[in-house]
């Protein structure tokens, strides 16, 4: 009789445990589904790499071996056509509604005086520049590169390149 009572108590306990067990399973499943969706549902954000490569390509276009390329500052059409000269295409057919997903700014300074030269130029969507320095993962990603070059007459220049990549729709959720 004593054994029988213990036996019934065990059944009740097991039923209670099984209810809690399924509740735990549902919670575990919810957590796993959330984590998997979070990890695999998030797009790969490559805008940082893109903006660094863009700055690097522009820098390579302007200088070679530490020397400013010929006609960069003297050629009057450079300012208007620097995107074409540097072989940069800012069109983004994968963003049909956009007003521009890139912005590039090249500033030339006299190294000795620090004064900005007239050859400084820019291209792309200037509205993106205002987000540089702001926090927030949906903001455009900026890259700021500074370097020094000399021309053939040994005159030194400082060049600042700002490149901004938006493409938020395809890089952040």
């Amino acid at each position: 009789m004593k054994n029988h009572r213990i036996f019934l108590g065990k059944i009740g306990a097991e039923k209670t445990i099984s209810v809690y067990w399924f509740a735990i399973l549902i919670i575990v499943a919810g957590v796993i589904i959330y984590m998997v969706t979070f990890v695999y549902g998030k797009p790969y954000d490559i805008r940082g790499s893109e903006s660094e490569i863009l700055s690097g390509n522009i820098a390579n276009c302007l200088s070679e071996g530490g020397y400013l390329k010929e006609n960069t500052l003297t050629n009057p059409s450079f300012k208007q056509n620097f995107l074409k000269i540097c072989k940069v295409n800012l069109k983004t057919p994968d963003f049909p509604e956009t007003k521009g997903e890139y912005y590039i700014e090249v500033n030339f300074y006299d190294f000795n005086t620090g004064s900005k030269l007239n050859s400084s130029t820019s291209g792309g969507n200037i509205n993106l520049k205002q987000y540089c320095g702001l926090e927030g993962k949906t903001n455009p990603v900026c890259s700021n590169k500074d370097f020094y070059v000399i021309d053939k007459s040994q005159k030194a220049y400082s060049i600042n390149i700002i490149s901004v990549v938006n493409k938020a729709d395809k890089n952040v959720q």
């Binding site: 893109e50 863009l54 072989k87 940069v88 295409n89 800012l90 069109k91 057919p93 963003f95």
Partner: peptide
């Protein structure tokens, strides 16, 4: 590659396109 957009398509209903800026 179509213009300056690269597309990868692994299934009938899928396909993902991304543009590149290097004018080559």
């Amino acid at each position: 590659i179509n213009g300056n957009t690269v597309t990868v398509k692994l299934s009938d209903k899928g396909g993902y396109s991304y543009s590149f800026f290097n004018d080559v």
